[in-house]
């Protein structure tokens, strides 16, 4: 319940989209439902050819986690490219012409 509350609070502050808010809400509600009525998980598991509901949850969790890691890698790569582009634009905009010695030996402002 707390997770659902946090998700919608995040949505109200426009930090997450409606799609992700709905998906997270469905996920948390599903977890609440399964923990209150474990037989539902067993029934769904049998429909999908898996013996136990707990097994189904484990398989689904692994699949979701793998996908989440993939998405994180993609997003990290996008951020990396954006940082490079920004760094490049700044470097070109602030380029110093030859023999502009007054800008020489300034305090280092790089971000390691």
């Amino acid at each position: 319940m707390f997770a659902i509350f946090k998700t919608w609070k995040s949505f109200s502050k426009k930090r997450t989209s409606i799609t992700w808010t709905s998906l997270w809400t469905l996920l948390w509600m599903g977890l609440i439902l399964v923990s209150l009525q474990p037989r539902i998980a067993d029934r769904i598991a049998r429909m999908l050819g898996v013996e136990k509901g707990a097994d189904l949850i484990a398989y689904a969790s692994i699949a979701v986690l793998v996908y989440a890691v993939y998405r994180l890698f993609v997003r990290t790569e996008q951020h990396r490219n954006e940082v490079t582009k920004l760094t490049r634009e700044l470097a070109i905009a602030r380029a110093s012409e030859p023999m502009q010695k007054n800008s020489c030996c300034k305090k280092n402002i790089c971000q390691k």
Partner: peptide, 9 residues
């Protein structure tokens, strides 16, 4: 001509 990357890339 000197171009400075503010972040090591």
């Amino acid at each position: 001509h000197v171009l400075t990357h503010l972040v090591n890339r």
